[in-house]
Amino acid sequence: MATIKELLQRESALSSGHRMCAGCTAPIIVKLISLASKYPLVVSCATGCLEVATTIYPYTAWKCSFIHNAFENSAATISGVETAYRALRKKGKIKNEIKFIGFGGDGGMYDIGLQALSGAMERGHDILTVCYDNEAYMNTGIQRSSATPKGAATTTSPAGKVIPGKKQFRKDLTGIMAAHKIPYVAQASPSHWQDLVKKVEKALEIKGPKFMNILMPCTLGWRFMVDEGIEMAKLAVETCFWPLYEIENGKHAVTYKPKEKKRLIEFIEKQGRFSHLKKEKNKHIIDELQKDVDRNWEELLRKA
């Protein structure tokens, strides 16, 4: 891994002055990814918080070239950019080595853009696609997505008198991407930034399609204090709610094993979106969530 000194000598792709919420962890993720790259980057981003809050015309927070096309097509768009690059390289019209990253939120990658993501990965483009997963459609006002955990309250799966938040478990997008048998798939978290940087460095050295799913705590949607984002990310990892692992050419490796796996309740109790689960009649949901986390973690350890 590049040393901290080396990382700090590089320029972040995202400058300050963007308009994401105070305490948003998305800019931290983008910054880490861009510092991890020793290559110039060209990025695409799906419609969502990251895009709208960084590119309000006539300003842009992006120091590298950036394209936003629509909500569901970040992967397809960056696949077009990468293909244009290959066409020009072949003709000797571009000398520099450039790396391509397609960003999207969980809405843009798990849901509406899943097909475009799957297609781009299957076609074998030399791109890194990144889902910044804040577990709901935040930009449009915190609606549920297929990445929203069971029991979480969102504006379309509110904790009501009868229905206690989202009814379904999360979709396993990392697993779906692994099933594409692409050369590199990883889960990362901004709390474990060295692990994240290493994964990006590795991904950018691999030719072909890569996918990273990065947990992105959202102060507004998860309802925690603005200075607690990294703490939330850390708890997600320490409870194994969000395990850090990678799948390189089909080989699973857990890249961080908590010394002592924390109880999921420690992650849940700090967030307003789960506050209704404390009620006696909803406690069974916490048990279900814990069981789900345990099962997934054991399965992962078996594979690794």
Partner: peptide
């Protein structure tokens, strides 16, 4: 949908 999306990416390049 992806055909036109990729065209936009390529043409913007």
């Amino acid at each position: 949908h992806s055909a036109m999306s990729a065209c936009v990416g390529a043409a913007a390049s």
